[in-house]
Each structure stands twice: as structure tokens, then as C-alpha cells.
């Protein structure tokens, strides 16, 4: 535990008076107060990347938007997490994600247990406005226990982070850039041939969609167990 006393800031989120320690983010404090801000790339316990842009919030006095997952609380800050503008941006961002992959929910093992799918429902998305891009992507079932289906990958890099930061294997990373970016294991080889993968399955359990799944599941049978991460993180902190 750190010895220096943490300074506490008071601020407003959606007109509610709340307080947070200076090293906490807007998202941390909002969640402590049961104020829901949608996220996709963020997972407590992994380094924040601020890449999905769903958690953008308004701060009064600034025309800019701020990602709640990486913006630290400040004294007197007035945060707005719900507005027409934010709702419209969040919807469009999700619609872009849907348009950029081949997310055929009806034939997905994660149907009903998918963060992308349920976010779409929660944000009131009933159709995708942008033309689907139908990228040609592959499915790799070479691993003994798991499958990676690139059609359903949203490139949130949770797998990359949990593998590198928690498991320590760094089997996953991202290759290429822009719309040709993909997750890869080792040297972009079949997952089953990976020499670094420990088959721990952390990536599978943290994957928000049906991109990383267990073998042998049929449609809607795959549900993920994410509880291991807070457990590992708190155990490690306790040991320190």
C-alpha cells in the first residue's frame, strides 16, 4: 500500500455530487456510483487503451469529448455521461463495428452472451445504417481446445493485453494496420502451432464477442467466465 495519503476530489457526474481519489478515472467513480457508461475495450485489471471510444463523456466548459476510462477525476469537474450527442456517437461507433466485421449473430456460439450484441440492444440499435463491408476473414480451429473466428473480432485487444500483462506469454498481438489489422498468435501462424501459448484460456474468457471461443460449442452455447481476472489482480496486489 502506498504511504502517501491519496488526495480526494469532489466532482459532479450527471448532476450527482460524487468523490474519487486523484488517481481514479471518471469511469471508476461513475461505476462506484452505479452510473452506467458503456465500454468495450476496457477491462478492470488490464491497462486501459481508450480505443473503442464508447465511454466518451462531456465535461462542462470544454467542446472536446473525453474517454472516461483514461481521464482522471479533477476537482470541480462536471461530467455529463448521457446526452443526445453522446448517444448518437455511441450508436454510430457500434454501427461502424458491426459494418466492419461479419457479425452474423444467428449462427454465433456467443449469441446471447455477447457484449457487442447486448450493447447494441441497450443503445437501441435495431439496424446498421452503414453498408456492411463484408471483409474476407478466416476461422482458425487448429488449437486443441479453442477457436479464433476473425469474422467476429472487433480488435479491442483484450486478448493481447491479458496474454501479455497477466499470463505473461504475449502469444497474441496485432498485425498490419487500419482495416487490415488482425489479431495474430506468434508469427501469424496457426494458433495450434504456437510455441508460446500456454492454453490457459484467459483470452477466450475475456473476449467480448464470439471471436475467441471454446471448441465444441453450438450456437448460443458459449458463455464466458470473467471472474478470474479481478481474482488474480486482487491476489497479486495483496502479495505486493
Amino acid at each position: 500500500m502506498s504511504t502517501a495519503p491519496a488526495r480526494v476530489k469532489t466532482l459532479k457526474i450527471d448532476d450527482r455530487d460524487v468523490s474519487g481519489r486523484e488517481e481514479e478515472t471518471i469511469l471508476d467513480v461513475a461505476r462506484q456510483n452505479r452510473i452506467n457508461i458503456p465500454t468495450l475495450c476496457h477491462v478492470p485489471g488490464l491497462s486501459p487503451v481508450g480505443s473503442c471510444r464508447l465511454c466518451l463523456v462531456e465535461i462542462k466548459g470544454s467542446p472536446k469529448l473525453f474517454p472516461a476510462c483514461v481521464t482522471l477525476v479533477r476537482e470541480g469537474m462536471e461530467v455529463v455521461t448521457k446526452s443526445e450527442r453522446l448517444a448518437s456517437y455511441r450508436k454510430m461507433i457500434l454501427e461502424l463495428l458491426f459494418s466492419d466485421g461479419n457479425h452474423i449473430c444467428a449462427v454465433c456460439v456467443s449469441n446471447g452472451n455477447c457484449e457487442l450484441q447486448s450493447l447494441a440492444q441497450n443503445l437501441g440499435i435495431d439496424s446498421i445504417r452503414f453498408p456492411y463491408r463484408f471483409p474476407k476473414l478466416t476461422v482458425d480451429a487448429s488449437h486443441q481446445r479453442f477457436v479464433v473466428d476473425h469474422n467476429r473480432c472487433i480488435l479491442c485487444a483484450r486478448c493481447v493485453r491479458v496474454c501479455g500483462e497477466v499470463e505473461g506469454a504475449h502469444t497474441w498481438d496485432l498485425m498490419g494496420r487500419g482495416t487490415s489489422m488482425r489479431i495474430i498468435s506468434d508469427m501469424n501462424e496457426a494458433w495450434g502451432d504456437s510455441e508460446t501459448c500456454t492454453s490457459c484460456g484467459k483470452c477466450v474468457q475475456l473476449c467480448p464477442t464470439g471471436a475467441l471461443v471454446e471448441k465444441g460449442k453450438s450456437v448460443a452455447e458459449m458463455s464466458k467466465k470473467k471472474g478470474f481476472l479481478p481474482y488474480i489482480v486482487s491476489m497479486r496486489e495483496g502479495r505486493r
Binding site: H170, D173, N188
Partner: peptide, 22 residues
């Protein structure tokens, strides 16, 4: 070559490949 560089610099394979293709 990529494997050799990864090994010598102790950089994970996927990271080397990720950088080379970025």
C-alpha cells in the same frame, strides 16, 4: 530473420511480426 531478431532482442514473436507488418 524475424525469429532470430525476436530471440536475440527478447521481443515476443507476435510483437516482432506486429511491428514488421505495421
Amino acid at each position: 530473420a524475424l525469429r532470430f531478431v525476436a530471440g536475440a532482442l527478447r521481443v515476443p514473436l507476435s510483437q516482432v511480426y506486429g511491428v514488421a507488418t505495421f
